[in-house]
Design a binder for these strands. Structure first.
Lengths: 203, 203
DNA sequence: ATTCCTATTATACGATTGTACAACAAGCAA
DNA sequence: TTGCTTGTTGTACAATCGTATAATAGGAAT
């Protein structure tokens, strides 16, 4: 007669559902809004469950960092895959994907800022290090396919990543100062300059 | 016989003292630690004074943003002044000053992240817009002195600022991935590429 | 010495925070 | 059907949050 007051879930599914709820709250309300109660409400469970599955709110946010970072990775990989086979096109696609949805997005920006604001905690800093290293590794592989000398790849990847991050940041913080199209032009221009330089020095 | 329990201060001096205390708390404990009580304790006054002088905690943080932003401006201007008279040297000094103290500093990073995390509030966003516009204006003036065509200045200033911000960010978040010296090399290399390009196209 | 203005303090208030824990019940095993 | 395991709930707890306000007292003016 009475319908169940709650239902049990597979531990992994429940964890995943809490992580996704955290991502939504972070995107909507930023770091200050991501309380245990708000997350539990968003996930449709009771506040006590957070403590049951994660090492406090910090542990949950750290795992959410990894999950959202992985989603960005997937979005970038999709952009590369859609670019075809030409190595130059693939690098350009990887770089400029950051200036269009779903990556250039105020909600994702709020999420990212929340992660950065917790970077004083070692567990969050470790997540960041691993994630950004994987981004640079991806970029280095794409650069290698373009024939960029191995000796140049590391620093070029650092520079490209920094430029893209900086443009993405300002694009989210002050849209109106420049357009996503201009960001794209600037990023592609810098890519060309590195290829030209390496072609020149290898001659 | 009894010494005064407190002393009155010139309104401007008291405001300044509260702003400086806020900057210190932000630098030490980040956004989450910047409570009215913590700031008042740091300034050596009672919590009630914050409400007396500022429009709540948000107003105080917004004014602190302007003050800290001004300090950064001063530090950059000092680096330029110390660089001598050659326009190229001056631009290089402006750009690379971000990779050395007092700008490349974890405490300033924590402060900056705190500002960004509040950028959803219009009062903070407005401060950011004004501040970053002034940074780009400074850079454009330095670029103009180097003979960069007026038509190129805006986008070049945007690109340089983005690269520097991105490098500064990663330098603060993950020191160890690359050195301040490498960041300097990358920034100067990009500057050169823009000057080369403009020299080529104006020929 | 006295008066007065107001900067400053101290406290109270309701709301919200993260965590801990006892009680409950869903759902599988027997 | 009965029992058992444990995922889940609901709440209590102390701490902290921002803000408002009455009371206090510094310090200049008279």
């Amino acid at each position: 007669m009475s319908k169940p007051a709650f239902s049990r879930a597979e531990p992994d599914a429940r964890r995943q559902s809490l992580i996704e709820a955290t991502a939504r709250v972070l995107a909507r309300d930023g770091a200050t809004g991501a309380s245990v109660r708000a997350i539990a409400l968003e996930a449709g469970v009771s506040p006590g469950l957070v403590g049951h599955y994660f090492a406090g709110i910090d542990g949950l946010v750290a795992e959410t960092y990894a999950a959202v970072g992985q989603q960005v990775h997937v979005a970038l990989a999709a952009a590369v895959a859609a670019a075809g086979d030409d190595p130059r096109d693939r690098v350009a696609a990887y770089v400029t994907a950051s200036f269009a949805p779903p990556i250039a997005d105020r909600a994702l920006f709020a999420t990212w800022i929340a992660f950065w604001s917790l970077s004083a905690k070692p567990i969050i800093a470790a997540r960041h290090d691993a994630l950004y290293q994987s981004y640079r590794d991806d970029l280095e592989a794409l650069l290698a396919a373009c024939g960029l000398p191995a000796a140049d790849r590391r620093l070029v990847a650092i520079a490209i990543t920094a430029l893209v991050d900086g443009l993405w940041l300002e694009l989210c913080l002050s849209p109106g100062n420049f357009t996503p199209g201009e960001a794209r032009v600037l990023a592609e221009r810098q890519l060309e300059s590195y290829f030209d330089r390496s072609a020149k020095s290898s001659r």
